[in-house]
Amino acid sequence: MLRIITPVMRVIEIPMLALQRLLGINRLAWVFLAPNLILFGLFAFLPVILNIFYATTGSDNVLLSDRPYVGARNFVTLTDCGNYLDANSCREDKFWRAVWNTLWFVTLQVGFMVGFALLTALILNRDIRARGFFRSVFFFPVLLSPVVVALIWKWILQREGVLNAFLDWTGVGGVNWLVQADWAFGWSVFISVWAHMGFYTLILLAGLQAIPRDVYEAAIMDRASAWRTFRRITLPLLAPTMLVVLVLALIKGVQTFDEIYAFTGGGPGTATTFIIQYIYEEGFAGAPRLFGLAAAASLLVAGVLVVLTLIQLWVNRRNVNG
């Protein structure tokens, strides 16, 4: 292998040395960074710039050259509200319904998900029978495509679905789950927790396994109760992992779209319409295509995600610095 690599390296070495002589050793770093920078610029930075252009221009034309500059009009349209707590008082009521739905959804989903993921991780960390099997079972939904998740639960929950058939059989009587706003929202939270919990369970499990055994042994010797051990040892030592899980789950929660869109389409009414669906519908599914409004809304969401990411970075840095 070395016999092949060495001559190749010698061939590469010649132009690289020439380049180093030409640019100097410090500037040469840019040459190595260039491919990544170009890709990042093309696929991350440029779209953000384009998004800003779309957010500050109007009309339903897709070509920027055909779009008149409208300044902050799209942002004003989105934020023009009599009372931010009452979507009906807002000019763009659908946006605020989506914002409030997303906030409720994220609060419930992240709360339940982190709670259940922790509980599951604690159980799976114990010496139970068929532990490997159960770890796979809890992780399995993570492997499913969001559309598959949505279709499975739609079949279960639709008017003539599996759950209602079972409820009819037991004599309880079925419920039209997807037509009632509260039920549809509740099931959306449940499905989202079910589909993603395995991923966070895995992270928390790794965090639990990283806690030194001798700390627990010392607790046993001190005759500490299980609850006290959990509160005073497990939770504090797991806190850095918990924070990472929390921030990741928050970001993912704000971005929720595909599985709920396939599950309820955002309905009934706008009961399960979240912010990303609003952006998609305004910009791509509706007529006329309100690219400007969609771009402005996506910039606002991006702002929220940046804040959440900064929190994550700050938390990470604090952990590293002890």
């Binding site: 639709q158 008017r159 039209n176 997807l178 037509v179 309820t264 389409g265 955002g266 309905g267 009934p268 009414g269 706008t270 009961a271 399960t272 319409t273 669906q277 519908e281 599914a285 509706g286």
Partner: peptide
Amino acid sequence: ARDVWASQGGAT
């Protein structure tokens, strides 16, 4: 049939 109009969102 309420299911038709109420069980979906947006203009689906």
